[in-house]
Design a protein around this nucleic acid. Structure first.
Length: 479
RNA sequence: CGCGGGGUAGAGAAAUGGCAUCUCGCAAGGCUCAUAACCUUGAGAUUGUGGGUUCGAGUCCCACCCCCGCAACCA
């Protein structure tokens, strides 16, 4: 953390809107939000992008199943994402959708540029095509040689397709990844990708579809639509109002951190940076990969019916509690397990009994023993910089643990000092104690505000009010 | 031999090669400022298995067992 202000551009993945948002989407987005708030707090020029990926055959199918046009369908789902982010107090600067005309126009220009340059060429894709899915299938997807969804044997088919010369960028990208020019964190993920580059290497990939209508037509051959990822990746640029490769790159580019879960790591460290090189743009500074959730020990899936809607949790426990829980429960970067039971345990234990009760007893004593009056010249007795440092390094759980250690310390101090007895013999000592506690709580609020903005505001407002009354409970315990 | 992550108390996590620690839960005690909260103490672990290196291994090496994720024209 240096003193001078810096620009900080952070993105979440662009979520595919074939269904409403679930807790996994919320996880990535909350983590990104904490970083964005943290950087704004120290005065960095911060831009935080979220968005939705709205093209492709899956969406067309989902729309048809819902009896809607693709555009109606994606409008509806995009609104649900937007609503969820509002509910969770996400402070994004922009919400981009790949169906926006400006995005589409930039994608067309980018692809034309790559085509003119020779990085996109007409080729052939040969594979196993399932008539039921209307899609090509991989060998590994088949069960007994049949499509698992339609129970039919796919046919060998070949199709004309435009290929992206991904292989061309193998050496350059590998060098950038190994040298941390394009940093991949945690390092185990970097190793995984480096390994992939060295063992398998990059092969040219199909960048267009002939049988997919819901997509962006290639400007030079309208019978093809753009491969969804090629379309989607460019949102990270069009989100900054980039209009195409002929324009100078946006001032905020490259992204400082791109957060994502591990399922899309590989495409983000191969196709995406290769496209950037093809377009003559810098690669992202850092890609950070977090883990997956299981729910109550089971993989989250629609068929199991255990998919969690973040809105449900937020409605019941409040957005701050959900934000706290997601970041506290699982070390960032690892896989973890969540459930409402675990959320409730954190809510009651850490929030209600921990922070909430400490705030109550402290403000009550300030009202009772100090007549609500605090003086300004109070110094924090503890140093919470370790917490901020942890947050900067994306160790959210570690930072929260550090803060809660201070809460435990404060509770111990109160019990040891016995202000309810001490007040009878030495009120000056009680005053000193309470001023220190107030300072500590104020500091905790400051450090906690990126994670729990509403709670932090409540704490600060009361302590800064000039006339402190016993606080309303911050968190009411749940049965 | 596809790639990778992981296995530490009932649960979840932590431990530059050096007394295995923390949180929740459980048991006992204490306190009354506080949201039946808070504080103290205790029980509970031969660190997945078997070898090896070392004065010393949860940590390093080898073999094996078990979970999980990924496997790019399925986002």
């Amino acid at each position: 953390m240096t003193e001078e202000t810096k620009k900080f551009y952070i993105t979440t993945p662009i979520y595919y809107v074939n269904d409403k948002p679930h807790i996994g989407h919320a996880y990535t987005t909350v983590a990104a939000d904490v970083l964005a708030r943290l950087h704004r707090q120290v005065g960095n020029e911060t831009f935080f992008l979220v968005g939705t990926d709205e093209h492709g055959v899956k969406i067309a199918q989902a729309a048809e199943a819902a009896g809607k046009s693709p555009q109606e369908f994606v409008d509806e789902i995009a609104a649900k994402f937007s609503f969820a982010w509002d509910t969770l107090e996400i402070s994004n600067d922009r919400f981009i959708r790949t169906t926006e005309p400006a995005h589409i126009s930039a994608v067309e220009k980018a692809l034309q540029f790559m085509y003119d340059k020779g990085d996109i060429y007409l080729g052939k894709y040969e594979g196993l095509y399932c008539r039921g899915c209307e899609q090509f299938k991989m060998e590994k997807d088949l069960v007994d040689g049949k499509c698992p969804d339609h129970k039919i044997v796919p046919e060998k088919m070949s199709e004309e397709t435009y290929m992206f010369r991904l292989s061309k960028y193998q050496a350059e990208l590998l060098e950038k990844i190994e040298s941390d020019d394009l940093q991949i964190s945690p390092v185990s993920r970097k190793n995984e990708i480096v390994n992939f580059y060295k063992k398998d290497g990059l092969q040219d990939i199909s960048f267009s579809r002939k049988n997919v209508k819901w997509g962006i037509p290639l400007p030079w051959d309208k019978s093809h639509t753009t491969y969804v990822w090629a379309d989607a990746f460019l949102n990270y640029l069009t989100g900054l109002d980039w209009q195409g490769p002929k324009d100078p790159p946006p001032a905020l580019w490259p992204a400082d951190i791109q957060l994502m879960s591990k399922d899309i790591l590989r495409v983000h460290t191969t196709i995406w940076p290769a496209m950037l090189l093809s377009l003559g743009l810098a690669v992202p500074a850092k890609i950070f990969v977090h883990g997956f959730f299981t729910v109550g020990g089971e993989k989250m899936s629609k068929s199991l019916g255990n998919v969690i809607d973040p809105n449900d949790w937020a409605a019941k426990y409040g957005s701050d509690a959900v934000r706290y829980f997601l970041l506290r429960e699982v070390p960032f970067g690892q896989d973890g397990d969540v459930s409402e039971e675990k959320l409730k345990a954190r809510f009651n234990g850490d929030l209600a009994n921990g922070l909430g009760n400490l705030f109550s007893r402290t403000t009550n004593m300030i009202e009772k023993y100090l007549d609500g009056q605090l003086e300004d010249a109070v110094r924090s007795p503890k140093d919470l910089s370790a917490a901020s440092e942890a947050f900067y390094n994306l160790d959210f759980a570690g930072g929260l643990v550090a803060i809660w250690q201070e809460i435990a310390w404060a509770n111990q101090l109160i019990d040891k000092s016995k202000p309810w007895e001490l007040f009878k013999t030495d009120p000056a000592k009680v005053k000193e104690l309470l001023l220190n506690l107030a300072a500590l709580l104020h500091d905790i609020a400051l450090k906690l505000s990126p994670v729990m903005p509403e709670t932090a505001d409540k704490i600060r407002q009361l302590l800064e009010s000039g006339d402190v009354k016993k606080a309303e409970p911050l968190f009411l315990k749940k049965d």
